[in-house]
């Protein structure tokens, strides 16, 4: 499967401590120093900047940024958009994973590549295609506007663009693991009389839950933080079609730096929480019992009778 986002660290067991190096302390120290210097310059300092700029004029000014009605509206809209996009893409991801991982069919590779497309295209293009489809200058968009349905420069457009950019996350995290699980357990469950939904929710889903959760975390982070695609379709109407990242941009361009960084700090905390959750999920999935026998003994100890 093509990787267009940074791949997760490997799920297999990593040695707790790296193997000891033979003689030579100078080179490791040098390489570690270079690494840390590079990361400080490009990663840690920008991160610290967000908080120092947000708190530059004291905590009262920082807190005041949150009492702005436009800021609250932006936070509400961001939550609303994520609350729509994430569940939809979760259902899509599970359906796609089930079809791709458990069945053989022609065009499977193509389908996987199509799922990856949103990660390959520029966010600006992701937004633009919805403007081209539903904007007032298109056939469909003009019809919809006649019927008083506005999609572009309104909330539906923001939701659609967000769904587009976050579409691949759950699917791509789930498919490889579900493929690796094979279909024997599901067949056994069905043979023992479990219904299709029972099989899915009691057998398949528990086996891939960490991957699904991981995908949902990434999907949510991107849904709340998406800027480029949403920027194209939003129209930047203050208090109405501004998500949190768009509100940050407006405040920054108005030279209201403290408020801009105050809002940005909220998004940064979200990002840090995402990273923390990610680490926990990775840790849990590494330490979860890799052997299905220990988890669902009743299903596997029974010999699956192939149905004809």
């Amino acid at each position: 499967m093509t990787r267009l986002s940074p791949p997760a660290p490997p799920m297999h067991n990593r040695p707790a401590t790296p193997p000891p190096r033979p003689a030579g302390r100078v080179i490791p120290a040098m390489l570690i120093t270079i690494s840390l210097a590079y990361l400080t310059l490009f990663l840690f300092l920008p991160l610290i900047t967000v908080f120092t700029e947000a708190l530059r004029k004291g905590f009262a000014t920082y807190a005041a940024a949150y009492s702005d009605p436009a800021a609250l509206a932006a936070i509400r809209l961001t939550l609303l958009v994520a609350a729509i996009a994430v569940p939809l893409n979760l259902v899509f991801g599970l359906c796609a994973a089930w079809a791709i991982a458990k069945f053989e069919f022609r065009g499977k590779r193509l389908l996987i590549t199509l799922i990856d497309i949103p990660l390959a295209v520029s966010p600006v293009i992701s937004g633009m295609i919805y403007v081209l489809l539903y904007g007032g200058n298109s056939l469909l968009g003009a019809r919809l506007l006649d019927a008083d349905i506005q999609i572009i420069f309104a909330v539906p457009g923001i939701v659609l663009a967000t769904i587009f950019v976050t579409l691949p996350f759950v699917a791509r995290e789930t498919i490889p693991l579900m493929e690796a699980q094979g279909i024997e357990e599901e067949q056994a469950a069905m043979t023992l009389g479990a219904g299709p939904f029972q099989t899915f929710f009691r057998v398949t889903l528990p086996n891939v839950k960490w991957a699904v959760l991981y995908g949902v975390i990434l999907c949510n982070a991107r849904a709340m933080g998406e800027f480029g695609a949403v920027s194209v379709v939003s129209g930047h109407i203050r208090g109405k079609t501004n998500t949190l990242p768009l509100h940050v941009e407006i405040l920054y361009n108005e030279y209201n730096f403290v408020a801009a960084f105050a809002m940005a700090s909220l998004l940064t905390l979200l990002a840090l929480m995402t990273l923390l959750l990610k680490s926990i999920v990775e840790h849990r999935s590494r330490h979860a019992a890799p052997d299905p026998v220990t988890r669902i003994p009743t299903l596997v100890t029974a010999t699956p009778e192939p149905q004809t």
Binding site: L43, L45, T49, V50, L267, T268, L275, L276
Partner: peptide
């Protein structure tokens, strides 16, 4: 450090944009 390497992926691009511009 290992966990933080993913930060650019998790941080909304608008935030990294204004932070880098300021820095």
């Amino acid at each position: 450090v290992d966990a933080m390497v993913d930060l650019p992926f998790a941080l909304p691009t608008a935030v990294s944009g204004i932070a880098l511009a300021t820095l």
